[in-house]
């Protein structure tokens, strides 16, 4: 029988197709954006943590002689109607925004994850049907309007705004976790754990939870960005952080009446909200891609 002859020769690599190049370049772009997002988030956290050391002035120090001053070397972002240094207020405002984002999402996680797990794992009439129908009903309300109403019911303050935003975001986590648990409960490792006599609570916490942590982290990251916008919106409408505590949303609202004389009062806080939110969104997208085996 004749054997195929192998010919020696230089090894050549074919040029990657246009499609592969475009896929690679869009992946690189995404990674770069995610990295930039992560860096911005880190900078923002550092600004918030070290605000008292970084801010050149006290955020509540008033100086009527310096009211409505444009950006200068003394006041990088200018001053507001009461002569307060905007840069300092924005730096301290980062504390408020990050606190609002983290605490409200933390609250949503605290309520939403257990409810979603119970609903998905037991799938009984009370736990699944009732929890999910109430979740559906809550999702019928525009989140901002629900948060506004809750904040009004509780009374205007940062703490109440955080509670309102946390409650409004809870259905997102219930839905997500329920869906993930529904998929996991059919897997062999859960059947094996049940067969070995482990208690349901143990299976849920020690076995299922670690396997659904990825999507929860992604959703939580993206919701932090949404919570920052929600807090700024509530403060803009006067139902969030109260004066004199610096809040980006309230600063923006204050500046709206002075757009002609002092546009910087609105522009800089808005820019920080935008940069914070886009950075967290991009970072969240990056984490999603990183955790998704199909994209790797």
């Amino acid at each position: 029988m004749e054997q195929p002859q192998l010919k020696a020769g230089p090894i050549t690599f074919s040029k990657p197709s246009k499609k592969v190049v475009s896929r690679r370049s869009s992946k690189i772009l995404k990674h770069k954006l995610a990295l930039m997002g992560g860096i911005f988030v880190a900078v923002l956290i550092l600004l918030a943590v070290f605000a008292p050391l970084i801010a050149p002035y006290s955020p509540i120090r008033q100086s009527y002689a310096e009211a409505l001053k444009p950006p200068s070397s003394a006041h990088w972002f200018g001053t507001d109607t009461l002569g307060r240094d905007l840069f300092s207020r924005i730096i301290f405002g980062a504390q408020v925004s990050l606190k609002a984002g983290l605490i409200s999402v933390g609250l949503a996680l605290l309520i939403g994850v257990p409810l979603g797990m119970i609903s998905g794992y037991f799938r009984g009439l009370w736990d699944d049907l009732i929890i999910m129908r109430v979740t559906d009903a809550m999702l019928a309300f525009p989140s901002l309007i629900l948060a506004l109403t809750l904040a009004a019911v509780l009374g205007p303050s940062l703490n109440h705004a955080m509670i309102a935003i946390g409650l409004v975001f809870t259905p997102n986590f219930i839905r997500l976790v329920r869906g993930e648990v529904l998929a996991q409960r059919e897997r062999e490792y859960v059947t094996a754990a049940k067969a070995s006599g482990l208690k349901n609570v143990h299976i849920m916490i020690r076995h299922i939870f670690p396997n659904i942590l990825g999507p929860i982290i992604v959703q939580a990251t993206l919701n932090v960005a949404a919570a920052i916008i929600a807090e700024a919106s509530l403060s803009y409408l006067g139902l969030g952080t109260q004066l004199p505590t610096p809040s980006w949303g309230a600063m923006l609202a204050e500046g709206q009446g002075y757009l002609q004389q002092a546009p910087w009062i609105s522009i800089f806080p808005g820019l920080f909200i935008f940069v914070a939110v886009i950075s967290i969104n991009v970072f969240g997208d990056g984490i999603r891609d990183w955790l998704d085996p199909k994209i790797k």
Binding site: I229, G249, L252, A253, I267, G270, L271, N281
Partner: peptide, 15 residues
């Protein structure tokens, strides 16, 4: 698309 989903409506309105 990234900017559009991240920009707060009230800031865009003011701009």
């Amino acid at each position: 698309a990234l900017s559009g989903v991240s920009i707060p409506a009230f800031w865009l309105g003011i701009l």
